[in-house]
């Protein structure tokens, strides 16, 4: 049962990712990315991480991707132009990508102590997760939140900077996002 679900949703995930690259319309690409995000959350669920699955849907599919589609809608972006790609990209890009993927794969395969994840019925409860997050991993957790705070401050600074040029309606829209 788990294996069937895994194959179905892993396939969906890959199909979404490939579709994301092939689509010529930005909004289609954004929607494919949502498919990738949601099928990833099902994969998390299959690994027993229910909180992570729910957070994945809420944060990535429900908030970040809404912002993406919002921007596409606001700019009313049309179809992107197709080019055949430069010769440099073809001759250097593809081998480079293959090499990088190979390096990453070998490093991961040879790394020790990464732990094993199994498709199982066992579910890590939110309580266990949060007690580890707020005791053992407290420092990295708080440092990450500072990182996010910096990003927010940067966004505010950027919005402030352009306030003089735009009318008040634009800044109200900015607050909305």
């Amino acid at each position: 049962m788990h294996l069937i679900l895994f194959i179905v949703f892993a396939g969906l995930c890959l199909a979404g990712a490939i579709n994301l690259l092939l689509q010529s319309h930005p909004i289609d690409s954004a929607l494919s990315l949502i498919v990738v995000m949601t099928s990833l959350s099902v994969l998390y669920l299959l690994l027993g991480a229910e909180f992570l699955a729910a957070a994945q849907v809420i944060v990535y599919a429900g908030a970040i991707m809404v912002l993406f589609t919002f921007v596409v809608m606001l700019l009313n972006a049309g179809r992107e132009e197709r080019t055949l790609g430069s010769r440099v990209a073809k001759s250097i890009g593809f081998p480079a990508v293959t090499v990088i993927l190979a390096v990453i794969a070998t490093v991961i395969l040879h790394a020790q102590g990464l732990g094993v994840a199994r498709l199982s019925d066992g579910i890590t409860s939110t309580e266990d997760l949060s007690s580890i997050l707020f005791t053992k991993l407290l420092l990295p957790f708080e440092v990450t939140s500072v990182l996010i705070l910096i990003a927010i401050l940067g966004a505010v600074a950027l919005a402030r900077h352009s306030e003089g040029n735009e009318d008040s309606q634009g800044s109200a829209e900015g607050t909305g996002k």
């Binding site: 909004i27 949502i34 949601t38 229910e50 909180f51 729910a54 957070a55 849907v57 809420i58 599919a61 429900g62 908030a63 809404v66 589609t69 919002f70 596409v72 809608m73 579910i123 409860s125 939110t126």
Partner: peptide, 25 residues
């Protein structure tokens, strides 16, 4: 009966935005 039932409701609601956004666009 899901352990993270509340989050499921919030998540599904947040996906519902797409219905409206895509309809308008």
């Amino acid at each position: 009966d899901v352990n993270v039932g509340l989050l499921v409701i919030l998540g599904v609601t947040s996906i519902g935005v797409y219905g409206i956004a895509l309809a308008g666009w």
